[in-house]
């Protein structure tokens, strides 16, 4: 249930900017490379502004709007061409699309910049489904996976269905529905550090539900959730419960590339 206005999508462009997000840059660069391969295969030129850093969300949600503004402002100038900006995480996309206008609400010139920027922000799976019309044959063997959609993607970007659309189109992939699938994974950025016990308990339930549904592999379009879920699955308490099937996972860009690449990599 979401009340955002239905978004109008542009035709498939020749060029896009890629906002990799700091987590992908630092922890999961393969997801960035695979996203570029997927987009280029569709005939789209991908431009990665090397000056990019972070969207500013950690400071914003922690209650430090000044610091968030300082960092957000640095991203404003990185996208001078009117191309779409594809973001590899629902929560960063939500920050740039929904919260930049709030962040600069009292700064008229920057507000209009922020609004213009927000209009060009697309979450990666949203872009593949709604703009690219992604459709590639599944070239890999049968597998069973679970999909975790971040809360920001669901509630701020309204793109909880696009991940399922992409995975559902893969012929040999069975996507299992897990219990409380719509519930948060417990990451919440710095919440995971401030309230590690609560965060851990939520993440633990998420891991249990995914395993219970019969999936050994989890796919998500958000690196934060993924690091949290996999970190919990392999964390200090996981090792104690012997006999538990291992849980692996990857960013949806990597998963899609591995399934659809002509030469399996």
């Amino acid at each position: 249930m979401n009340d955002h206005k239905q978004r109008e999508y542009p035709a498939k462009p020749a060029d896009v900017y890629l906002f990799g997000t700091c987590l992908v840059d630092q922890f999961v660069p393969a997801a960035g490379l695979d996203a570029i391969r997927l987009l280029e295969r569709e005939g789209i030129r991908v431009h990665f502004p090397m000056q990019q850093a972070c969207c500013g969300q950690p400071a914003y949600t922690s209650g430090f709007p000044e610091e968030a503004r300082a960092v957000a402002l640095r991203q404003f100038d990185l996208f001078p061409q009117p191309w779409p900006i594809v973001v590899l995480s629902g929560s960063c996309a939500g920050m740039m699309r929904q919260h930049y206008p709030t962040l600069f609400a009292h700064d008229a010139p920057r507000l209009s910049q922020a609004q213009a920027l927000a209009e060009r922000i697309f979450e990666f799976t949203e872009f593949l489904v709604q703009v690219v019309g992604f459709s590639r044959p599944d070239r890999a063997g049968p597998t069973t996976v679970a999909l975790h959609t971040s809360c920001s993607a669901r509630r701020e970007m309204d793109v909880h269905v696009t991940g399922h659309t992409l995975l559902g189109a893969l012929e040999h992939v069975q996507v299992v529905k897990h219990g409380h699938e719509e519930e948060c994974c417990g990451f919440g950025g710095l919440f995971s550090l401030r309230h590690p016990d609560i965060s851990g308990a939520i993440a633990n339930d998420k891991v249990q539900e995914i395993r219970k549904a019969g999936a050994q592999h989890v796919v998500s379009a958000d690196c934060g959730c993924l690091l949290n879920i996999l970190g919990r699955a392999t964390g200090p308490e996981a090792s104690s419960s012997a006999g538990e099937a291992s849980l692996t996972g990857e960013h949806i860009a990597s998963f899609l590339w591995h399934r659809t690449a002509e030469v399996n990599v």
């Binding site: 030129r45 431009h47 995971s192 016990d197 993440a203 919990r232 200090p236």
Partner: peptide, 24 residues
């Protein structure tokens, strides 16, 4: 607090920006 309930976070040996092909 992160490793209280989770495996440690380890940065990748090369960042995305280090691995990017020149044209991107």
């Amino acid at each position: 607090a992160w490793t209280h309930t989770r495996a440690p976070l380890i940065p990748a040996p090369r960042r995305l920006r280090d691995l990017l092909p020149q044209q991107n």
